[in-house]
């Protein structure tokens, strides 16, 4: 696969704060690449250096083989950008925004079709200032796709969207990728990164903590899975010591949590308990997720 974004030893400080601290990675053509981390981790600074909005103190970023600050205009023709912070003139209408921004590009997508896809078709004549936060966000996503970009940057793609709109946005992102574009997004929703991204870069305090597929991140770090069920307090729990996949068992009141790992963890526990005649009530498994990975790698919760 071809690297479409190449970042090497990127550094950027604001006064004493190292916002981006020696960050290196590559984004390959055709993938959905996600950069995750808590607020203030340096995601926006990093993506805005790559977009050409900010200058790095040192290190290099190349997009489609070009320097983003030196080839701003050429790159802007081929790249789509949704910024975390931007605005339009308050009295500019939705349809005018598409007409105006469309006129800047050599290549143009059907703006009205995009609006329809994003559920804004009845807002054509609404002034920007009268749109809700979620509608403004969707308009900016439309605008990012106006030039049929080869590479799209989404900075906090679904912030301000309700859960339903968020899911629909994930579908849209997958469609865009199917159309041949590469996606680079940042998010602080770990679930979003896990569901959507082919590869995830975890950023914390400006440093790369991990970079891999979500499955490899969750599976590779020995983060434990959990099996939870209800067992009346008076009933004894058979020993699970014989099962290699099980690491420990916690019991508080009628709730039992079995910790362990490996692909056959859950099924081996269930089989062993059924053999002992234990009635498994309210059984569920809790898969480790990227939040657990973050906790394990940094010792902190994603949401402080």
């Amino acid at each position: 696969m071809q690297p479409i974004v190449q970042v090497e030893h990127l550094q950027k400080s604001y006064e004493d704060l190292k916002a981006v601290d020696d960050v290196s990675f590559e984004v390959y053509s055709g993938e959905i690449f996600g950069m995750v981390g808590p607020n203030g981790a340096g995601k926006t600074t990093t993506i805005e250096i790559i977009e050409g909005l900010r200058k790095a103190d040192s290190g290099s970023a190349r997009v489609l083989g070009m320097d983003p600050t030196q080839s701003r205009e050429e790159l802007a023709e081929r790249v789509g950008v949704q910024l975390q912070q931007s605005a339009l003139p308050p009295r500019l209408r939705v349809v005018e925004a598409l007409e105006l921004f469309g006129s800047f590009y050599r290549q143009q997508a059907d703006g009205k079709e995009l609006l329809k896809r994003l559920g804004l078709e009845d807002k054509l004549n609404a002034p920007y200032a009268k749109l809700s936060g979620g509608q403004q966000q969707r308009l900016f996503i439309c605008m990012a796709l106006l030039n049929k970009p080869e590479l799209v940057f989404f900075d906090e793609l679904t912030t301000g969207l309700d859960p339903q709109a968020r899911r629909s946005m994930w579908g849209l992102v997958q469609e865009i990728r199917q159309g041949g574009a590469t996606i680079f997004l940042t998010t602080h929703f770990m679930e979003e990164a896990e569901r959507l991204c082919d590869r995830v870069l975890i950023l914390d305090h400006g440093k790369v903590v991990a970079l891999d597929t979500p499955e490899a991140l969750v599976g590779g770090l020995g983060v434990e899975k959990r099996l939870v069920f209800t067992l009346p307090e008076e009933q004894a729990l058979p020993s699970l010591d014989g099962l290699p996949a099980v690491s420990r068992v916690e019991r508080s009141g009628s709730r039992v949590i079995v910790y362990g790992q490996g692909r056959r963890f859950a099924s081996s526990v269930v089989v062993a308990l059924e053999d002992e005649g234990v009635d498994l009530v309210d059984l569920r498994t809790e898969q480790a997720n990227l939040e657990d990975v973050f906790l394990k790698l940094t010792g902190r919760e994603m949401r402080e």
Binding site: G52, L53, E74, E77, L83, S86, A87, L88, P89, F104
Partner: peptide, 17 residues
């Protein structure tokens, strides 16, 4: 006010000179 609101930074990521 366009600069303050972030209108200009949105324009900066287009090919507009």
């Amino acid at each position: 006010s366009y600069r303050e609101m972030g209108v200009l930074r949105r324009l900066k990521v287009t090919p507009l000179k």
